[in-house]
Design a protein around this nucleic acid. Structure first.
Lengths: 125, 125
DNA sequence: CTGTATGCAAATCATTTGCAGCTTA
DNA sequence: TAAGCTGCAAATGATTTGCATACAG
C-alpha cells in the first residue's frame, strides 16, 4: 500500500468536492495536473479506496458508478438535488422502525441502505 | 401497447418469483418455453414495465440491473438475505424523521430511497 | 532492491439500437 | 390494415485485465 501521488490526488479531490463523482469526471479533473494519468488507474484507485472505506459508491440512473468521500462507518447520505452536496446522516431514528417492521411484517431487519434527496441549507437560502 | 405473450410471461414470472431477477436470468427462465426469445426483447419489456410501474429495479453489487414485481406506488423493499424474497414496506415512520433531519442538519427532505436487508418470516423459522 | 502501482491497449460484459419481418387489436 | 412488437446482429459505453515499465519504501 503506497501513498502515491495519484491516490493522494483522488482523495484530495473527493474530500474537497463532497459530492458523487464518476470515474470519468475524476479522471478529467486530474488530467490537467497529471497528463499521463490513465482512466484505468482511476478505477483501480477507487476500488482500492473503497476497500479502505475512504470512499463509497452508488449507481446513477445513467448506469455510471459514482464515488464520494466518506468518514464514519455506518451512515447514510443526504444528497442535495440542487448542488449535489452530500452530507452524512446517522441512523438512530431507524431503531424504532425496526421493532415496527418485526411486528407488522414479521421481518427481522439486519441491514439497510438509504439515500435521501432534498435541498441542503445553502441551496435553500 | 399490446398484451403480447412475452410481456405476459415476464410479468407472470416476476409475480411468482417476488425477488430481484436480472434480465439474463429472466431470459434464461423463459427461453425454454419461448425458444426464439431475444435478450433484447427482455430488456425492452422490462423498460416498458418499469414505465408502467409494474416493476422496479435496482443495481446489484456486480453491476447488473435486477428487476422485481411491484404493486403499490410509494414503498420500499424488505429483501430477505436468505431466500431473496421481496416484501413491500410503507413509509409512515419516515415522517417523524423528516422533522429531525431539518432540525439537526438543516436538510429539507424531498425524496428517499431505502432498501432493507434481513430475514423474512419463512426463513427465520 | 523488491514488491506495488501505473500506462497503454486490448478484452469484457451488460445494455442499446437499426432494421426488416411478424403480431396484435 | 396499421401501429406496435420482435429477432437478429452489430454498436455502444462503462469497467476490467495483461503486460512491460516506472516508482515507493
Amino acid at each position: 500500500m503506497y501513498a502515491t501521488s495519484t491516490r493522494r490526488a483522488v482523495v484530495e479531490l473527493l474530500k474537497i468536492e463532497r459530492r458523487y463523482l464518476s470515474a470519468a469526471a475524476i479522471f478529467a479533473s486530474l488530467k490537467g495536473s497529471q497528463p499521463k494519468l490513465a482512466l484505468s488507474t482511476v478505477y483501480r484507485t477507487l476500488e482500492f479506496l473503497q476497500r479502505l472505506g475512504t470512499v463509497s459508491s452508488r449507481t446513477e440512473a445513467s448506469g455510471e458508478t459514482a464515488y464520494v468521500y466518506c468518514t464514519d462507518d455506518h451512515h447514510h447520505h443526504a444528497i442535495c438535488t440542487v448542488c449535489g452536496h452530500v452530507d452524512e446522516v446517522d441512523c438512530d431514528a431507524m431503531e424504532g422502525f425496526r421493532g415496527a417492521l418485526l411486528r407488522n411484517q414479521s421481518f427481522a431487519l439486519d441491514e439497510h441502505a438509504i439515500e435521501f434527496y432534498g435541498r441542503c441549507a445553502r441551496c435553500r437560502s
